[in-house]
Each structure stands twice: as C-alpha cells, then as structure tokens.
Amino acid sequence: MASLNLLPNPSTSLSRSLPFSSSSSPSSSSCFYPRGFVPRRNFHAFTPKGNNHLKPFLVVKSAVDEAPVAEPLPFPFGESISSLKLNLLSAVSGLNRGLAANEEDLEKADAAAKKLEAAGGLVDLGDDLDKLQGRWKLIYSSAFSSRTLGGSRPGPPTGRLLPITLGQVFQRIDILSKDFDNIVELQLGAPWPLPPLEVTATLAHKFELIGSSKIKIIFEKTTVKTTGNFSQLPPFDVPRIPDAFRPSSNKGSSDFEVTYLDADFRVTRGDKGELRVFVIS
C-alpha cells in the first residue's frame, strides 16, 4: 500500500496532522482521502504565504518492496527578497553612485531592480508612509551616468579636469512636517596653495502624495554650509533663480514613484526615468 508524506524538515513529522493519515477518520468538518492519495490543492498548506525564504519541500514516496524516492514539488519557488536586494547592490557596486556607469552597467542595474520590484509587489504609501521616515543614503542613480550633478536635468558637470568632486548624497524625509531634503556633500577645488573647500548643500523641498506610490516634491531653497577647515563659517542660502529665467525642464518641482520599499531599502523611478537606490543610514 503506497503512502506519501510532506517533509519540510527531516527532524519534523507532519504525518499526525495530514488528513490522509491512517489514524484519520471521516467527520462532518473534514474530508477523508484514501490512504496514499494526496489532493494537489493541499500542497500549499505547507508553504506560508509571503515567505520568500523557504526552500522547496520534498515529496517522499514509498511503496511495497520499493526504496523511497525523493522528488521536488511541482510548483516553482522564487528568489528571496534578501537575495534580490543583494543582487541589486552587487549590480551597482563600484559604479561611484552611477557616475562611472556605462550602458551595460545601466542595463544590469535596471534588470536587477525590476526583479526586486516584481517580487516586492505594488507599493502603497497610504499604508506604508511611515517607512519613508528617516535619513536615506543614495547608493546609485542612473542619472549620474550623464556625468552631471543634475542628472537628467541641468547641473554642474563633474570630471577630473573640473574642480567639483561629489561626496555622499542623502535624502532626509519627515512625514509629519512633509520636509524632503536632498543633502549633497561637495568638494570644490581652489587655487594652490589653498586647500579644497568642502561644503554640504541642502536642497529643501516639501512633498505630497499624488498617488498610491507616487510623490511630488516642491523646491523651497538651497542652503550651503562649509565643513572641514572652514566649518566655523555660518551657513547661507543660495539666491533662487527667478522662474522666468529657469529652464523649462527645471521649474522647481518634480515627481517620482516608489517602486520598492521596506524598513531599510528603497527603490524609486523618476519622472525622467531615473532609477535610484537608497539604503537607510
């Protein structure tokens, strides 16, 4: 007589709870199956919903005068969220936040991000807005491959021959005050024998939700604070260019979509197609 057991762990036996166990008996609240028959719809009972870290269970068959045979279950298991996050980090590592990315690097990063976005599902900021709270460090921006600090928008160029070196980039988000600050560390070259000037520029914005996963930011002001050898100098606000003189592509507001979000990892897609990856800092 054939029998079948699902064994998620060699040290654990589930035979006592299976509806087709020899000790089972028909009742009004459960179905009775002949010994050795396993309905396909019962397989999912041993795969907790939303758990991406389980390895495939095994079906172990036995028959009279036959040795046990182990086979994988017939339904697929996806990669874990943790491994997909690591794959994305691996794809963007060594790219200097995107400044050193070529076309092949951009494609690899985009493909890794799409796998994570698909596994994570749709983001609903109506329920998960609190996960935005905090200071986020930019790991990668596809827009920086244009070799300008403005990314897909106008901005000062970077390079060996120009005296601007990009340091760390952060986003500081306060969901109560609706503050959304982009914080950029820069090093500005100076004529010899003066040391380079290190500054932190804070581009202050307000934000609002314009969809379940989309955010609009509205620019307010830029504040510059010297650091390093000149840290004693007070901060100052950079005068804002009047809207009449601003390029049509930079009117002080933009929007982006949050395509993946958890407590320590965030992926966004900008209104000009920029892919950005952040980790909580």
Rank of each mutant, 00 (worst) to 15 (best):
L84T: 06
T12F: 09
H44E: 15
D181L: 05
R135A: 12
S83F: 06
I218C: 02
G150I: 00
I81N: 10
A244M: 03
L99P: 01
R35S: 02
P56R: 07
Q187F: 07
S231T: 06
P10W: 13
V277C: 00
A63V: 13
R240A: 04
A101G: 10
S254W: 00
N182V: 01
F32L: 15
K216I: 03
V279D: 03
V267T: 08
G50L: 15
R40F: 13
K216W: 00
P156M: 14
G273K: 02
D255K: 01
G78E: 03
R16A: 06
L176T: 14
G134W: 11
L14H: 05
S145H: 01
F245Q: 06
P154M: 01
P195R: 05
F219H: 00
K108L: 15
P72H: 12
D128Y: 06
L7P: 09
F37Y: 07
Q133G: 12
F230I: 06
S28C: 08
Q133H: 13
G98T: 08
A100E: 05
S3T: 05
D255A: 01
R172K: 14
E107R: 07
L116W: 10
G228Q: 00
P247Q: 10
L73D: 02
D237R: 13
P34Q: 04
V64K: 10
K272A: 02
K214L: 04
E71W: 02
K221Q: 08
S15Q: 13
Y33W: 12
L138C: 12
L261S: 06
N5S: 04
N9K: 09
F278M: 09
V69D: 12
D179R: 07
P68Y: 04
W192V: 08
K115C: 07
D65A: 09
S28P: 03
E208R: 00
P247L: 14
A113Q: 10
P56Q: 09
A91I: 14
F77C: 13
F219I: 02
